[in-house]
Amino acid sequence: MHTSRVALITGANQGIGFQIATDLSGHGFTVLLGSRDLARGEIAAREIGSNVVPLQLDVTDETSVTAAAERVRSDFGRLDVLVQNAAIATALTGEVTSQQLAHAGRPSVIPMQDIRRIWDTNVFGVLAVYQAMLPVMRLTPGARIVNISSGAGSLTLNAQSDFPLRSGFDAGYCASKTALNGLTLAMAIELEPEGIRVNAVSPGYTRTRLTGFAGTDTVEQGAAEAVRLALLEDRSPTGTFTHAEHGALPW
Rank of each mutant, 00 (worst) to 15 (best):
W251P: 10
E220A: 13
A230C: 04
P111I: 02
L55V: 11
L92Q: 02
E190W: 00
V123L: 13
R73K: 14
V126C: 10
V136I: 12
L232R: 04
T97C: 07
G11K: 01
A69P: 07
A226N: 05
E95A: 15
A143M: 06
S4Y: 08
G105W: 04
F76W: 13
L82M: 13
A86T: 01
S150W: 07
A44D: 08
T178Q: 02
F124T: 12
V201T: 11
I118F: 04
V201I: 15
T10R: 08
P237W: 07
A91I: 05
L92G: 00
G172V: 07
I145R: 01
A230F: 00
Y173Q: 05
Q113A: 14
V96E: 02
R40P: 10
R235S: 12
R166L: 00
A226G: 10
I48M: 09
A12K: 04
Q160F: 00
L79T: 05
L183F: 14
V52P: 11
S25K: 06
L79I: 08
F18I: 12
L127P: 00
A186R: 09
E190H: 07
S25P: 10
G172N: 06
T3H: 04
G222T: 03
D170V: 09
G151M: 12
R117L: 01
P237V: 07
D114E: 04
I189C: 00
A143E: 05
A69Q: 04
G212P: 08
R78K: 05
A143F: 10
D80T: 12
E225T: 12
V59I: 15
I148F: 01
F76T: 11
A67M: 13
N147P: 09
E194C: 06
S202R: 08
D61P: 13
A12W: 01
I148S: 01
V6D: 01
I20T: 02
M133G: 07
Q19F: 03
E225V: 13
V123R: 04
Y130E: 10
P111N: 04
P107M: 03
A171T: 03
A69N: 02
V219S: 10
A68R: 04
L82A: 14
F213C: 08
A91Y: 05
R117W: 00
R71Q: 09
P141T: 03
I196M: 11
A159E: 03
A12M: 03
G153L: 01
N199P: 12
R117K: 07
A224W: 02
A230T: 01
G222D: 05
Q14I: 14
A68K: 10
A200T: 02
I9E: 02
T121G: 05
D61A: 12
A244Y: 10
A152M: 15
Y173M: 04
G172P: 05
